[in-house]
Nucleic acid binder design. Structure first.
Lengths: 159, 159
DNA sequence: GGACTATAATTCGATATCGAAATAACCGAT
DNA sequence: ATCGGTTATTTCGATATCGAATTATAGTCC
C-alpha cells in the first residue's frame, strides 16, 4: 500500500533519467580530459576558453563567461593561468576601459593545433557508441531539457 | 569542395550531441543546487555523500569514492567538512583498521529529511520538461553512452 | 616472525569554482 | 562637472577536485 509514494512511478522515471544523464557526462569526460591534461597540461576549463577564442575570436571577459556558463570570478582564475603560460593575453578595450579583451597568442594557437584534432577524435569516438540517429535524438532531448531548465527563472518558490 | 573536412558531417553530429549533453547537465544543475546551497549550506558533493549514505547505509571510504566516481582524496575533503558540521561520522573498521567507515549522524538524517523531498521535487520538475517516453529514451541513450565510455579502458594510444 | 608487497586513507600542491565585496570606469541627470 | 547608479573585472574566502607522495595496516612468502 504505497500511499506515501503516490508520485513514485513518475518520480523514479525522472530520477533514473537524471542519474543516467549525470553519469554519462561524467564517464565521457573521464575519458576525454585526463589524456589532454597528462600530455599537454591543459585542464577542461582551459580547453573551454581556448576553444571559444579559436572559434569566436578575441572576446570581452563577461562575454566569455556567459558563453562558457561560468562565473566571471572563476574565469579570472582560469585566464590568469593561461596568461601565465603564455597561451592567451589580455588587452583593455580602448572604447571602454573597464573591459578586458582576451585573445589567443601565437603560442596558444600553436598549442591548440597540437592537441585539438586528437581531442575531437576522442570525442567523436566516444559519441560513436551511439548510432547516428541516436546521436541526433540525444541532442534533441538534451536541447529540450536544457532550454526548459534555462528558462525556468525563479519559479521555485514553494507554495 | 570541403576535401579538408572529410569527416565533417559525422563529426558535427557527434560534436553537436556532445555539446548539448554537456549544456543540459550544466543547465539542470544550475537550477537544482543553488537553492540547496543557499537555504541549507549543502554543496552538490555533500549531497552526493549524504544521499549515498542514506540509501546504502554506512560505507568504507573507498567504496563511497567508487560509488560517487570521485577520487579518494577528494572524498576525504568533502567528508572532513560534513564531519565538522556534524552530519556524518567516521569509525575505524575493527576488522581492518585501515578502513574508515562513514555513516550519517542523527543530525545528518534530520537535515536530509528537511531538504531532500524539496530537492527531489525540483529534480522531477526539471526532468518533466520531457515527456515520460522521452525520459525513458534519454535514460537509454545515456546508459548506452556511459557504459561504452566506461568500458574503453586505454585505447587512446595514437598510432 | 621478519621483509616485501599490496591496499586504505590522508596530506600536499595545484587548479577550479562560486558568491560577496571591492575597484574602476562609464553614463545619465541635473 | 559632479553625483549617483550601473556595469566590468578582480580580489577574497570557502569548497571541490585531482594526482602524487605519505602513512598505516594487512597479507604473503621464505
Amino acid at each position: 500500500m504505497p500511499t506515501h509514494y503516490n508520485g513514485s512511478l513518475s518520480e523514479r522515471r525522472a530520477l533514473d533519467a537524471y542519474i543516467k544523464l549525470m553519469r554519462s557526462t561524467a564517464a565521457i569526460n573521464a575519458r576525454l580530459f585526463p589524456p589532454l591534461q597528462a600530455a599537454f597540461g591543459i585542464t577542461p576549463s582551459q580547453l573551454g576558453v581556448l576553444e571559444a577564442l579559436l572559434h569566436l575570436g578575441p572576446m570581452p571577459h563577461c562575454a566569455l563567461a556567459a558563453k562558457l556558463l561560468v562565473s566571471a570570478s572563476n574565469l579570472t582564475t582560469v585566464i590568469d593561468n593561461l596568461e601565465r603560460d603564455g597561451l592567451v593575453r589580455r588587452d583593455r578595450d580602448p572604447k571602454d576601459r573597464r573591459v578586458s579583451i582576451t585573445s589567443l597568442t601565437p603560442t596558444g594557437e600553436a598549442r591548440l593545433a597540437e592537441f585539438f584534432p586528437q581531442h575531437v577524435e576522442r570525442l567523436v569516438a566516444a559519441m560513436n557508441a551511439l548510432e547516428p540517429g541516436e546521436q541526433v535524438e540525444l541532442a534533441r532531448l538534451c536541447r529540450k531539457l536544457g532550454t526548459a531548465a534555462s528558462n525556468l527563472a525563479s519559479h521555485t518558490h514553494a507554495d
